[in-house]
Design a protein around this nucleic acid. Structure first.
Length: 187
DNA sequence: CCTCAGTAGTGCC
DNA sequence: GGCACTACTGAGG
């Protein structure tokens, strides 16, 4: 039977919480950008090659969510997210709603402290959040980052300096890092 | 070069 | 409650 404990979850389950997400798309130099907004802020930003795939992936991530597509062409926030993607270090003045476990949110918030133009490693990041042995779990949390670019998981590399993975394509990760280390957007 | 064990959070059964 | 996943790492073959 249903108990109060059963309702109490440590994670605001991105996976199980029913919610409504307003979805818009933008075009960037890194491909199509999907922006999904909840009532509380931006819940997802994703990069991809086409809208259909991005929409499917969003549905997988939020199986219980109702997706409402709205007009993207004149949406100021979508345009602003695209500008953030194009301009290294540009700050976004908007509420974020990154849904995940406490552990994941710890990792994501640590990610936001990595300065533009710098990188860190999974090991360092694990130490930073006080869980030095959870290196692999930290990597998994990075992989679960719902907010592409806004939460700069692309600044995490392997200890040997190589790029391990990027949910939206290692090529995009490489490109983001190149731009950021150059200190400015491509001419 | 490649494989393997250690390790810890998450998702699906 | 279990079990098999990893965007990891360092050690060994």
């Amino acid at each position: 039977m249903m108990t109060v404990q059963a309702m109490t979850r440590r994670a605001p389950g991105a996976r199980t919480e029913p919610t409504t997400l307003r979805v818009t798309f933008g075009a960037s130099s890194l491909g199509v950008v999907l922006v999904a907004r909840s009532a509380d802020g931006i819940a997802a930003v994703a990069l991809g090659d086409d809208r259909d795939t991005l929409r499917d992936e969003l549905r997988q991530r939020f199986p219980r969510a109702e997706l409402v597509e709205s007009d993207s062409t004149s949406d100021p926030l979508t345009a602003e997210v695209v500008r953030c993607i194009e301009t290294p270090g540009r700050a976004l003045d908007a509420a974020l709603d990154p849904r995940g476990s406490e552990f994941q949110r710890d990792v994501w918030s640590a990610l936001r402290e990595i300065p533009v133009g710098e990188t860190t490693t999974y090991t360092e990041l694990a130490a930073r959040i006080g869980r030095p042995a959870a290196v692999r779990a930290v990597a998994q949390a990075c992989a679960a980052n719902p907010l592409a670019v806004l939460v700069p998981c692309h600044r995490v590399v392997r200890r040997d300096g190589s790029l391990s993975g990027y949910r939206w394509g290692v090529e995009r990760k490489r490109e983001l890092l190149t731009r950021e280390s150059a200190g400015r957007s491509p001419a």
